[in-house]
Amino acid sequence: MIKCGVVIFPGSNCDHDAYHVSKHVMDFETVFLWHKDEDLKGCDFIIIPGGFSYGDYLRCGAIASFSPIMKSIKKFAMDGGIVIGICNGFQILLESSLLPGALIKNKNLKFICKFVDIRVEKQDTPFTNSCTKKVLRIPIAHHDGCYYLEQSELDELEKNGQVLFRYSTPDGEITEEANPNGSLNNIAGITNREGNVLGMMPHPERASELILGSFDGKMIFNSVYNFLKKKGNN
């Protein structure tokens, strides 16, 4: 059975949502991981959920990146462990240098909560191998979601195929109108070079049940399930 850990920082507020999907929708063994602890309790898969860790004081995700649990997660990630950072979790991964770049204020300077469409750029990854659709409909909810990276590093990121999701039209076209927050190259989610750490602004846990208007987000969790299952069998 797959064991998933959901990290709780002071100010995390999508922790229960991630837990719910992991435990009740995906049927994973699921535990909460407290930020002051270092023990990952033998999890195969770590979710760093959204929210306002430490109130977003200093910089989003900045303080959380120094917590004891992040020390362990860094090591887990270096060893190839599967980690997803969602929204504020993405910000924490950036601040922890597990992923490159920065997330700055949305171009309209306001918090935005709405469904958006994101195009899946690659299918042979731990996070997208079960995506049966090219474009996923998943909500965003953030104030600081504009992805930024120096041009040369951005070129590198693109060249390495680290961009996993881009904001698009429902038909998969990458346009300026489809970009809700001004992210460079319409970037909505990226992986590390090794491909085992994903950071994304949209919330797949909010789109994993039909009753919530979309279950496209579940494809991402299904992909992780398939990946880990295969890995376990090998």
């Binding site: 949502d17 719910h20 909560c113 709405k114 909500p139 909810a141 846990e205 049940e209």
Partner: peptide, 10 residues
Amino acid sequence: YEQYDHMVRT
């Protein structure tokens, strides 16, 4: 309402 997180807690 787009400025309010109206979906958290799913």
